[in-house]
């Protein structure tokens, strides 16, 4: 089964072709990695999938349905969650509040009932809380539950952001450079988590990553981009030794 498919996806900013007609298929329950030098268009692909950018051409198909014109706030409800390269957490809220916001896609609320905090609202809150606690257990975030984000180290923030994405109960998880800024131990933990997310939670992972060690350990499939175009595709080993990829990284 194919989870996500991009067909001839393109995004042009004026004359600059940030993404220039790329196509790929992400198989279900796999870890699919985008690599490429800076400015290759990897994050742009993510922004296209989460609908922050409007593609110039091409289509995006998620689980057999076209999502090219779905509004950005509907993406989470359809089962796609993401993290950001430079961390976009809610700085002045606690870890718990951040994670609970991850439940927003499932929290269809009635404002009038919420104003009075009717029993139904409380019941749903507790259900959300239980879902969040499962993620807290999974990522060992217990010590930070009531800490404000602004008081956390960079590494923990990365994990919280991953947790917030998991709280939406996605079927496709987009990770934008999950290991950047992490120390070697934290990166090792990340390897296990990504594998568990795929194998135990059954979530398809699409990620952008520069750490080739991490990429080789967890990826089922690697796609190399340069100047908005696909230059190589295949298993981590094959892509790593592809002459085009080597050339793109070394310059030339």
């Amino acid at each position: 089964m194919i989870a996500l498919e991009a067909r001839e996806l393109a995004l042009h900013f004026g004359g600059i072709k940030a993404v220039d007609g790329i196509s790929f298929q992400v198989p279900e329950r796999s870890v699919f990695t985008l690599i490429g030098p800076n400015g290759a268009g990897k994050t742009t692909v993510f922004n296209l999938i989460s609908r922050i950018y409007e593609p110039t051409a091409g289509r995006l198909i998620f689980e057999g349905r076209d999502i090219t014109t779905v509004p950005p706030h509907d993406i989470a409800r359809r089962g796609i969650a993401r993290t950001f390269q430079n961390i976009e957490l809610f700085e002045n809220a606690t870890v718990l509040q951040n994670l609970l916001l991850g439940r927003h896609a499932h929290a269809a609320g009635n404002v009038v009932a919420e104003l009075m905090f009717l029993p139904g609202v409380r019941r749903r809150e507790i259900a959300h809380r239980e879902a969040v606690e499962r993620v807290i257990d999974f990522l060992n975030l217990e010590p930070h539950r009531d800490t404000l984000i602004s008081g956390l180290s960079y590494g923990v923030r990365k994990i919280v952001e991953l947790g917030r994405a998991l709280c939406t109960e996605p079927r496709l998880l987009l990770l934008d450079e999950p290991s950047s800024g992490l120390n070697p131990e934290e990166t090792d933990d990340l390897v296990f988590w990504i594998q568990d997310i795929r194998d135990i939670l059954g979530i398809t992972v699409l990620m952008v990553e520069h750490d080739m060690g991490l990429v080789s350990k967890v990826s089922d499939h690697v796609l190399a981009l340069n100047h908005g175009q696909v230059i190589a595709s295949g298993t981590p080993g094959a892509v790593k030794s592809d002459p085009q990829v080597v050339k793109a990284y070394l310059g030339g």
């Binding site: 989460s50 922050i52 950005p72 706030h73 509907d74 993406i75 989470a76 409800r77 969650a81 993401r82 950001f84 976009e88 957490l89 809610f90 700085e91 002045n92 809220a93 509040q97 609970l100 916001l101 991850g102 439940r103 927003h104 896609a105 929290a107 609320g109 404002v111 919420e114 905090f117 609202v121 809150e125 959300h128 917030r164 939406t168």
Partner: peptide, 21 residues
């Protein structure tokens, strides 16, 4: 309630709030 959290979310990061639904 969820509405209040959504308000805080859009105060702190509109992009992230949007991608969370």
């Amino acid at each position: 309630a969820p509405t209040g959290r959504a308000l805080i979310a859009l105060r702190d990061s509109e992009v992230a709030a949007q991608s969370m639904g």
